[in-house]
Amino acid sequence: MFDRHIICVVGARPNFMKMAPILRALSVNLPSIPVLLVHTGQHYDKDMSDKLFDDLELPRPDINLEVGSATHAIQTAEVMRRFEPILDSYNPHCVIVVGDVNSTLACTLVAVKKNIPVAHVEAGLRSYDKKMPEEINRVLTDQIADRLYTTERSAENNLQKEGISSDRICFVGNVMIDSLLYGRKNAPTVSNILQSFSINSSRSDKFKKYAIVTLHRPSNVDKLDTLSSLLSILIEISEKIPLIFALHPRTKNNIEKFQLHSVFNSENIIFLPPQGYLEMLGLLSNSTLVLTDSGGLQEESTALGIPCLTLRENTERPITIDEGTNTIVGGNRDLILSCVDQILLGKGKSGRVPEYWDGAAAERITEDLKNWLVI
């Protein structure tokens, strides 16, 4: 029995989707190695976290650091402070981090300073927009992590431009798509989802064809003018195709703060609270198009062949544009409405599924771990 652990870190909702297939692959490909799942508690909604673990068939964390919400500096520092004793107690063989949240960078910093190897899953993605906190986390994590697992080939070019040698980089594909393909069979139907929120059948009948909307990034929802403009555009779109809007708490709070309540009166928009992973997958799989500022939905819509309009000025996932179904539209009203019209005419981007987005990325990661860790 191998007596030193692999520690796997999750901190926020997207991390759960990325870590679930890795844990399954570790149990199959490296069964002799004990695995410790550490949840930093950066995503601190207990009910939502519990639902995600169930949806993803992810084991409950062995340790929860219960960090909770705070400023970026305080949250990062608190994760570091609480994670260090875990490393001292277990002296793990390596630490696996995923994505680009504060927990990713914080745990990497602590481990590297203790000479514990770190593998970063989803390395090399770049928006080249340093106003995004996630971009800072990505760049710094990649500079100091030991093994960098990439989702697309362009990521290696990004890393090499930053002086990172190719022998630290391994192209494995996208573990988010592993979770999508694994969970899709269990996703509920749209009618069942709407029914669970007591939306009557006469109203839900008009949502046989619909678009999905998510908005949560501070650049879109924290300023009155920007949020008001985007909501006005969405109301216009809803006259062309009904919208199902999964409303993030930050967005809901700002709609109320800025007194933009009139958007709730639209007959052609259904507002839902944040959805569980399988519910969101069910809604996405049956949608006509997606309007979002989420990185994960850009990837998932590409994997499913559903046109996506990204309400941002850039993306760290360029493959979804170059090969997939994604179009960057920012907050440009005319461009957004034109793209919606094209999609509704059947002229939206069809794209193709990128290389290694095949449900086997986690297996490639664990196979590489065997060699990298000399197990």
Rank of each mutant, 00 (worst) to 15 (best):
I365G: 02
G163V: 07
H93G: 13
L227T: 09
I241R: 00
P273M: 06
F53N: 15
R153C: 03
V374Q: 14
H120T: 08
L284P: 00
G183S: 12
I241M: 01
V97D: 03
Y182L: 11
Y149E: 00
Q143V: 02
I63E: 11
G348K: 04
V290S: 06
T71Q: 05
H5C: 10
D358W: 14
R312D: 04
N186C: 04
Y356L: 15
I241Y: 02
R364H: 03
A211M: 04
T214S: 03
A362F: 05
E323N: 08
C94V: 06
V221N: 01
S262D: 14
V340W: 05
P318L: 02
K257R: 15
I270E: 11
H72E: 02
V38G: 07
I365W: 05
A361N: 12
R184N: 13
C8F: 01
I33K: 10
R352N: 13
G331W: 07
P249T: 07
R82D: 12
I212G: 00
H43C: 03
G331P: 00
I7Y: 10
K252A: 13
P273K: 03
D205E: 15
F83R: 03
C94W: 05
C107P: 10
I321T: 13
F16N: 02
V9P: 10
G282K: 00
F258S: 12
L234N: 07
